[in-house]
Design a protein around this nucleic acid. Structure first.
Length: 636
RNA sequence: GCCGGGUUAGCACAGUGGCAGUGCAGCGGUUUUGUAAACCGAAGGUCGGGGGUUCGAAUCCCUCACCCGGCACCA
């Protein structure tokens, strides 16, 4: 046997994983839960009768944790079958943080049921039932599961390819079809798991099938990992942008406009700061801003392909003269119309048209989620009309701009995915081949690593997706770059080339923030509401200690405002401790406290959010320093 | 859209068939305060909408809307 460190170990005859672990050391024998044989995961009890590269898997290893979680799903299924024998089991895999199992049962599981199931799971772990693998004859397995009323299992076994083994795992009285591997016994699972919630899920993910009840759980190698995970969940809840949006008085959403945002003064201030930052970056990058109509005639959407491919998501309206119009779900057709409004020369290319486009998409009600998924949003959209030769340099410039913008907002960890042709699309395969080739060449030329996201391209072209990672480690798709050989032609865009002939331009669709609304949601959660100074809607509050200092406080606030700082004034008759608390909870980055002392020597006591210290400095110095600090990044 | 759970004052929540409550915020007053909650007072409700059962409904039933968690969707 070859061990991971390259060491060789010889055994007289066939050995099991337990034998190998025991041969290496008693500590490992105890920690072992499974085995990797020539790169494939096996049960510890598997007998190996040939030379192989083996590695002992422990519960702390990623592979081990996955096995443990998969076992938690089986233990849950066993508990459910014991408590509710009429329930049918279906699938129960491990997830990123735990596991789930889909059950078929007429009666819904209640939170109380979940408590009972969890208690029974702990009991099954204490029973420490051996988990054993059995290979069954296909027909016998189908007959067995049919007999005990497990129709989903029987259906599934019948579809397993003929050349594959039908392996079953037995623990106590519970037998489940499973590829494995599994722990040697239920006791090895440990008690660091918890059932989280129950939700509906379609059998095999298809809405046409029956809806099952999916019970989610989380499981970890050790109790402290579970505690940490539960703490992370609480932290995510504290950072929830819907909650912070209300607490910080940024926006609200209501029944009167489901899926749309009512921006309050502070939230809209943030929106405008972001917008003007982007305008500055776009101006510097050679874009020209435009504004296209909200409502556009049906014939345009038919020509663009939206009517055929995107109709379900579009809001339709009618004019008095009975023309059918659609509220724009995308900005591209409008920009093409601006492009082709007059004859264009190759000398104008690349022509970069940008718009903060207000788009409406009729999302299914169940998809809506705060600012993250709305029906009305603002895209920081742009379309670049260029020649095929210019695709590469334009794409590189876009990638650089995207990454630079993300850095300015505090996101350094960005992943790029390449999404190729989707099943439903316009344009022939030859065109798609060319588009995919060019886009890939461009991202490669930009020197950026990427992974694949097959079948996820736009209906008119392949795309690059920019996914950024926030402070909690969650990924969000924001930016996108799409290469489109189809729409310019469909909408009749052309330019006069060097040769005097007409040519169809290539179009690059790109967004950086994606939806400004959603990006704000991500920012709020990333910073837990404590926005950096340049983004904070209220940057400073000047708070007086006594009414005697109110005059001077007002003067200090005026000085800040004159320097362009967004400044509030609090001369109420509360104690200073109360004011500090109020403005700290409101996540104001800077509090300038002024009392008699400060008034006397024209100074301020500067207190930063998150710090308990104050710094005394002259009013003029404070204003100078803060206005420098508050400057937006990349303001060259 | 589907499954499940919710909706009580601006916010957080209690109230399971018999007089709608608590805390915070807001409002009025007192207090003039030195870095994360001073004190007193008065007010605030179509218990999500509609329908039903009942002598009586926030409470039980039906229905619609919206919200939450997933699923599906995210072009």
């Amino acid at each position: 046997m070859t061990l991971p460190d390259g060491a060789l170990r010889a055994f007289a005859g066939p050995v099991s994983g337990s034998d190998i672990a025991a041969a290496i050391g008693p500590g490992l024998a105890k920690a072992a839960i499974a085995l990797s044989v020539d790169g494939r995961l096996r049960d510890l009890a598997t007998s190996i009768d040939h030379d192989a590269a083996v590695a002992v898997i422990t519960r702390e290893m990623p592979e081990g944790l996955e096995i443990l979680r998969h076992d938690a799903a089986h233990v849950m299924a066993e508990a459910v079958k014991e408590l509710y024998p009429e329930t049918q089991v279906t699938f129960g895999p491990a997830t990123e943080t735990g596991f789930y199992y889909d059950f078929a049962r007429t009666q819904p599981f209640t939170p109380e049921d979940l408590e009972r199931i969890e208690a029974r799971m702990h009991e099954i772990v204490r029973r420490d039932e051996p988990i054993t693998r059995e290979v069954w004859d296909r027909e016998a397995a189908i007959a067995y599961f049919s007999d005990i009323g497990e129709r989903y299992k029987a259906e599934y076994i019948a579809e397993i390819p003929q050349d594959e083994e039908i392996s079953l795992y037995r623990q106590g009285d519970f037998v489940d079809l499973c590829i494995g591997p599994h722990l040697p016994s239920t006791g090895r699972l440990g008690q660091a798991f918890k059932l989280m919630n129950v939700a509906g899920a379609y059998w095999r993910g298809d809405p046409k099938n029956a809806q099952l009840q999916r019970v989610y759980g989380t499981a970890w190698a050790a109790q402290k990992d579970l505690d940490e995970y539960l703490y992370r969940l609480e932290e995510a809840e504290r950072r929830d942008h819907r909650r912070l949006g209300r607490e910080l008085d940024l926006f609200h959403m209501g029944e009167e406009a489901v899926g749309s945002v009512f921006w309050h003064p502070k939230g809209w201030t943030l929106f405008r700061i972001i917008e003007s930052y982007m305008r500055r970056r776009l101006d510097a990058a050679g874009y020209q801003e435009v504004k296209a109509p909200q409502l556009l005639d049906r014939s345009l959407w038919e020509a663009s392909g939206h009517w055929e491919n995107f109709r379900d998501n579009m809001f339709i309206a009618e004019s008095r003269d009975a023309r059918v119009l659609a509220v724009k779900p995308m900005n591209c057709p409008g920009h093409v119309l601006i492009f082709r409004n007059r004859l264009r020369s190759y000398r104008e290319l690349p022509l970069r048209l940008a718009e903060f486009g207000n788009c409406h998409r009729n999302e299914p009600s169940g998809a809506l989620h705060g600012l993250m998924r709305v029906r009305a949003f603002t895209q920081d959209d742009a379309h670049i009309f260029c020649t095929e030769d210019q695709v590469k340099s334009e794409s590189i410039a876009i990638c650089r701009l995207v990454l630079s913008v993300y850095r300015d907002f505090g996101f350094d960890d960005v992943e790029i995915k390449f999404a190729d042709r989707p099943p439903q699309r316009v344009g022939g395969d030859a065109v798609w081949d060319r588009a995919e080739r060019d886009l890939k060449a461009a991202v490669e030329a930009a020197g950026l690593p990427f992974t694949y996201n097959p079948g996820e391209g736009a209906f008119y072209g392949p795309k690059l997706e920019f996914h950024l990672r926030d402070a909690l480690g969650r990924q969000w798709q924001c930016g996108t770059l799409q290469l489109d050989f189809n729409m310019p032609e469909r909408l009749g865009a052309s330019y006069v080339g060097e040769d005097g002939g007409r040519h169809v331009p290539v179009m690059l669709h790109r967004a950086i923030l994606g939806s400004v609304e959603r990006f704000i949601g991500i920012l709020i959660e990333h910073y837990a509401g404590r926005l950096p100074l340049w983004l904070a809607p209220v940057q400073i509050v000047v708070a007086s200690i006594t009414s005697g200092a109110a005059e001077y406080a007002a003067e200090a606030a005026r000085a800040c405002r004159a320097a362009g700082l967004r400044t509030g004034l609090d001369i109420g008759n509360e104690k200073i401790a109360y004011k500090v608390r109020e403005h700290s909870l409101a996540k104001t980055p800077i509090i300038l406290v002024v009392g008699r002392r400060e008034q006397a020597d024209r100074s301020v006591a500067l207190r930063r959010l998150g710090s308990n210290d104050q710094e005394a400095l002259a009013l003029g110095d404070a204003v100078a320093r803060l206005s420098q600090e508050a400057a937006a990044p990349s303001a060259t």
